[in-house]
Simulated scan of single mutants.
Amino acid sequence: MKFFVLVSLLAFGAVAKGDGVASSIESLISSMKESFSGLSAKRDLWYENYSTITKLTQSDTLQLEELLLVSKMAIPMIWSMYVNQVQGQKAYLTRLVNQELAQSLPYNAGFLAPPFPYFHVEATLSMGELQDFQVEVLRDSDVIYSLAVDFDEKRVVLGEARERNRILLEGDDFPPFQASHPFTINVQIADDCAFTSLWMTKMDASIPVPLPTKHHWCTQDYQQASTFTIRLGQDDQGTPDSAEDDQNDFGGEHQAIQLLALTVYDGVLVQ
């Protein structure tokens, strides 16, 4: 009612004061119409955007539910098949070295060269505290493979004696070693090529885990051998005799890196 009275008064004033005032009122009304039209267009745009976002959210929710269903059913099955395949290969291959132990480093294990220079090494270790250590593979007396872990530099260096091949794992690629948490180093020697993967957790058929990155290089260095040796050591260990003396000191056993198991298979594994 008040709005009607106001409009009536404005109209009356426009007639009373002439065409100039009437033009001003018409301009004001026109501006108000444009403003309302703009607000209406924005409202429609907001509604359209809201509807689009709602549809995308519903679609994403359905896809996530489908992905979760696949994860719960398919991934455990695929993982179980993978583990069973690896275990089946291990059962088929001859074990050149097979030891379960809890021996402090240093440690050496030698074996006669197989007819074909293809073998797979699995070494499971545990550290009471994080310490630098090394793993080497020797062909007769030549180092053909090495792995060195440096915790001060947060770096793993993979390579071989002639330093023609070097792979650095540092920064985000540095493995997440943990004190008193067993881990496994897999090394495969296939003639002149070497393959390495680091498992930070135990392989369990009931618990799927991401497969670790496999690092490799080839040297084109083909030589016959009579023996191979696996050599593991840790820094600041001194000579073997002094290392044994350290174990008798208080805390020495806790500080030493323990080799829990070492297995060498005659042949390589498809992992």
Score class of each variant (00 low, 15 high):
Leu262Thr: 04
Asp172Pro: 07
Glu136Leu: 08
Val135Pro: 03
Leu56Arg: 14
Pro210Ala: 10
Met200Thr: 12
Glu163Ser: 05
Val264Gly: 03
Ala205Pro: 06
Ala205Asp: 01
Asp249Trp: 06
Ile53Lys: 13
Phe36Thr: 12
Lys90Ala: 00
Leu138Ile: 11
His254Tyr: 13
Leu112Gln: 15
Val270Ser: 00
Ser51Pro: 04
Trp199Asn: 07
Gln223His: 05
Lys214Asn: 07
Asp60His: 10
Arg166Leu: 10
Thr61Val: 09
Met77Leu: 13
Asn248Cys: 02
Val268Met: 00
Asp150Glu: 04
Gln220Leu: 07
Val135Glu: 07
Gln85Gly: 03
Met203Pro: 02
Gly128Met: 08
Val15Tyr: 09
Leu64Met: 12
Asp173Tyr: 08
Thr57Gly: 09
Gly267Ser: 07
Asp132Lys: 02
Leu260Gly: 06
Ile75Glu: 15
Trp46Lys: 09
Leu67Met: 13
Leu198Gln: 02
Lys2Arg: 13
Pro210Gly: 08
Thr213Gly: 06
Asp192Thr: 04
Asp191Val: 08
Ala205Thr: 02
Cys218Phe: 07
Ile167Ala: 12
Ala91Gln: 05
Leu56Cys: 14
Lys72Met: 06
Asn84Leu: 10
Met1Glu: 15
Asp241Asn: 09
Asp142Phe: 08
Ala190Gly: 05
Leu64Asn: 11
Asn98Met: 08
Ala225Ile: 11
Asp132Phe: 02
Met1Asp: 15
Ala205Leu: 07
Ala243Val: 05
Lys90His: 05
Val15Ile: 09
Phe151Asn: 04
Ala243Asp: 11
Phe116His: 14
Asp142Lys: 07
Leu198Asp: 03
Leu9Ala: 10
Val7Phe: 01
Val209Asp: 02
Pro106Ile: 08
Glu170Phe: 05
Val268Lys: 00
Glu163Arg: 14
Leu169His: 02
Leu211Lys: 13
Gln87Glu: 14
Trp79Cys: 03
Ser30Val: 10
Gly20Phe: 14
Phe12Val: 03
Tyr118Met: 13
Ile185Gln: 00
Ile53Leu: 14
Ser242Pro: 01
